[in-house]
Amino acid sequence: MTALNPDPAFASQAAFRALMEAFARPGEMRTLRGVTAPAPLAPATAALVQSLADYETPVWLDRSLAGAPAVAEWIRFHSNAPLVTDPGDAAFALVADPHTMPDFARFAPGSEEYPDRSTTVVIQVERFCGRSFSIEGPGNKTARSLAAEPLPDDFVERLHANRELFPRGIDLVLIAGERVTALPRSIRVVMET
C-alpha cells in the first residue's frame, strides 16, 4: 500500500506550478517532487498523473509501462483515469522507454478548430545531457539549449514535423528524476552544430 499524501491539494498545486512554469519557459528545468509509485513509473511522472489526470483524461501507457500491471493499478486507484490502448485517444501518454515510442502522428493532434484536444506526451528520460538541440519561440527571450537521453534518433525531425502542424500538434514533457522540462508545440527547433 502506498500512503496517501496528507496534503493532496498543496502537493498537486506544487506539481502543477512546476509544470506551468515548464510549459511557459520551454527547455528550462523545474523541480517536480515525486511520489512513491511502482516501477517503471517514475516518481515525478506519478506526481504529474496525480496532479492532472482524472476520470476525464484517458491515459495511454507505452509497452514497458503496460507490461507492469502494478502501474495500471496504481493509475486507476490514484487518478481514476481510464486506460486506453490507442495513443490517438489519450489525453496523457506516458512513455518509459523513449526508443520504442510511437511516431508523434499516432497521438491526438487536436483539430484546426479545437487544437487543445491533443495528447500531452510524458517521456521519462535518464538524464539531461548528450547531443543538444536549441529551441526558440514563445517563452524564451533567446534560444535555449536542451539535451536529453535516451531519445529517438530522429527526435528533432519529429519536433520539426510537430511544429509544421501548428496550431495542431502534441505537447511534450520530459522527466528525469525530479527534474522536468516541457516542449510545447509552440517551440521552434534548431539543431546545434
Partner: peptide, 27 residues
Amino acid sequence: YNFAYLDEQTKRMIRRAILKAIAIPGY
C-alpha cells in the same frame, strides 16, 4: 472550504486548460 475555494477536480480541469493555453499562445 477546500484550499482556494475550488474543489480539486475543478482545479485539475482548469490546470489542464491552462497548460494547453500556454502551448497554443492566443488560442
